[in-house]
Amino acid sequence: MVMEAIVNYHSHNILPSQCASINMQEIPALISHVWSIIRRFDHPQAYKCFIKECYMRAECIEHLDELNDEHHVMRFSSVGGDHRLTNYQSTISLHQVSDKITVVIESYVIDVPLGVTRENTCTFIDGVIKFSLKALAERMAECL
Score class of each variant (00 low, 15 high):
residue 73 V to S: 08
residue 74 M to T: 14
residue 76 F to E: 08
residue 77 S to F: 03
residue 78 S to R: 05
residue 80 G to P: 11
residue 80 G to N: 12
residue 81 G to W: 06
residue 83 H to C: 03
residue 83 H to E: 04
residue 83 H to D: 01
residue 84 R to E: 14
residue 84 R to N: 13
residue 85 L to I: 00
residue 85 L to F: 09
residue 85 L to V: 06
residue 86 T to E: 07
residue 86 T to K: 13
residue 87 N to F: 04
residue 87 N to C: 06
residue 87 N to Y: 05
residue 88 Y to H: 00
residue 88 Y to N: 00
residue 89 Q to N: 09
residue 89 Q to P: 06
residue 89 Q to S: 10
residue 90 S to W: 04
residue 91 T to M: 13
residue 91 T to S: 14
residue 93 S to G: 09
residue 93 S to M: 04
residue 93 S to Q: 07
residue 93 S to W: 12
residue 93 S to A: 10
residue 93 S to R: 05
residue 94 L to S: 15
residue 94 L to N: 05
residue 95 H to G: 07
residue 95 H to I: 07
residue 95 H to E: 12
residue 95 H to P: 07
residue 95 H to K: 14
residue 95 H to Y: 10
residue 96 Q to P: 07
residue 97 V to K: 13
residue 97 V to G: 00
residue 97 V to E: 08
residue 97 V to C: 05
residue 99 D to E: 14
residue 100 K to V: 13
residue 100 K to E: 12
residue 101 I to N: 01
residue 101 I to C: 06
residue 102 T to I: 11
residue 103 V to Q: 08
residue 103 V to Y: 12
residue 104 V to K: 12
residue 106 E to H: 12
residue 107 S to E: 06
residue 107 S to D: 12
residue 107 S to F: 11
residue 107 S to N: 09
residue 108 Y to G: 00
residue 108 Y to I: 00
residue 108 Y to F: 14
residue 108 Y to A: 06
residue 109 V to H: 08
residue 109 V to Y: 09
residue 110 I to R: 00
residue 111 D to F: 10
residue 112 V to R: 04
residue 112 V to M: 06
residue 112 V to C: 07
residue 112 V to G: 08
residue 114 L to S: 07
residue 114 L to N: 12
residue 114 L to H: 09
residue 114 L to V: 13
residue 114 L to K: 11
residue 115 G to R: 02
residue 115 G to W: 10
residue 116 V to R: 03
residue 117 T to F: 02
residue 118 R to G: 08
residue 118 R to L: 10
residue 119 E to S: 10
residue 119 E to W: 02
residue 119 E to H: 04
residue 119 E to T: 10
residue 121 T to I: 00
residue 121 T to C: 06
residue 122 C to V: 07
residue 122 C to Y: 02
residue 123 T to S: 10
residue 124 F to Y: 09
residue 125 I to K: 03
residue 125 I to T: 01
residue 125 I to H: 01
residue 126 D to M: 03
residue 126 D to G: 02
residue 126 D to W: 04
residue 126 D to Y: 01
residue 128 V to R: 03
residue 128 V to K: 05
residue 128 V to P: 00
residue 128 V to E: 02
residue 129 I to S: 01
residue 129 I to E: 03
residue 130 K to A: 05
residue 130 K to Y: 04
residue 131 F to N: 10
residue 131 F to V: 11
residue 132 S to M: 13
residue 132 S to G: 15
residue 132 S to V: 09
residue 132 S to A: 15
residue 134 K to V: 10
